[in-house]
């Protein structure tokens, strides 16, 4: 696998690619340079750390440590999705529930089928992959819900005034938000293989696996992402819409 080697000198040269992004940001006055540098810095530090942590965890292969690592990933994914919720009346543990349940159910099913074994080098990367997709979906769901609660405020009030319980008053926008959250996953599934050779598959092909075997993994991944994003968005949406109302079933003022 010597052709897979990326050494530090290569990385320094590849930094030129970041300079391209920074040059564009500078010329087009996008004001993104600080953000780009910070993101690069964070990526380098976080990945270096996680590289060593994973090496250690894989080596000692301890169940408790593996679970802890997965929880850490879910915890962080939930924190990021939570921060994307524009509603000031939000709750972290509801986001955590959405991420935790969507990720563990998907992982559980895959393990039941036997295609994933409970060993750190398999469980941890897959957890990261599905949790990050669920995180994006949940974040999208929150943002859409918020903008709809703002735009459709009058409609919700009219429904409440007619005596609708909050769920019935919000169901149209709730459905819309969940749909929006799942759409990117569905769209990317449609173009898979035609536009992109997705990460998992590319990685396997890179590592010398027969492309025909690699696609089987990719199909599995596609199933997992569909399941986890829909579960994540549904749980997050159904918990989040209630926070736009008070306990008297009145619509809260938006600030």
């Amino acid at each position: 696998m010597s052709q897979l080697l990326v050494n530090n000198v290569t990385l320094v040269f590849a930094f030129a690619l970041v300079l391209v992004a920074m040059l564009i940001s500078y010329r087009e006055k996008l004001g993104l340079n600080k953000d780009i540098l910070l993101s690069i810095f964070r990526a380098i530090v976080q990945l270096t750390l996680i590289g060593y942590v994973l090496k250690y965890i894989f080596k000692i292969n301890n169940t408790f440590l593996t679970i802890l690592m997965c929880l850490f990933i879910i915890f962080n994914a939930a924190w990021n999705a939570y921060k994307r919720n524009p509603n000031s009346n939000r709750n972290y543990w509801e986001t955590f529930a959405a991420l935790f349940i969507s990720t563990t159910i998907t992982l559980g099913i895959i393990m039941l089928t036997g295609s994933l074994k409970f060993i750190p080098s398999q469980v941890i990367p897959i957890t990261g992959m599905i949790a990050s997709n669920s995180m994006v979906a949940v974040g999208l769901c929150y943002r859409n819900l918020h903008s709809q609660f703002r735009d459709q405020r009058q409609q919700i009030l009219e429904k409440l005034a007619l005596g609708a319980p909050i769920k019935l008053a919000a169901i149209t926008i709730l459905r819309e938000s969940i749909k929006t959250a799942m759409q990117p996953t569905i769209d990317s599934a449609k173009t898979m293989g035609l536009v992109s050779l997705p990460g998992m598959m590319s990685g396997l092909i890179f590592a010398g696996v027969d492309p025909v075997s690699a696609i089987r993994y990719q199909i599995l991944v596609t199933f997992m992402l569909l399941s986890t994003t829909s579960l994540g968005a549904i749980i997050a949406g159904y918990l989040a819409y209630r926070r736009y109302f008070n306990d008297r079933q009145q619509l809260l003022d938006q600030n």
Binding site: L160, A161, L162, G163, A164, P165, R248, Q249, Q250
Partner: peptide
């Protein structure tokens, strides 16, 4: 609350 609003209805 919903039952109340069905009986005291605001247009």
């Amino acid at each position: 609350y919903p039952t109340y609003r069905q009986q005291v209805s605001y247009c």
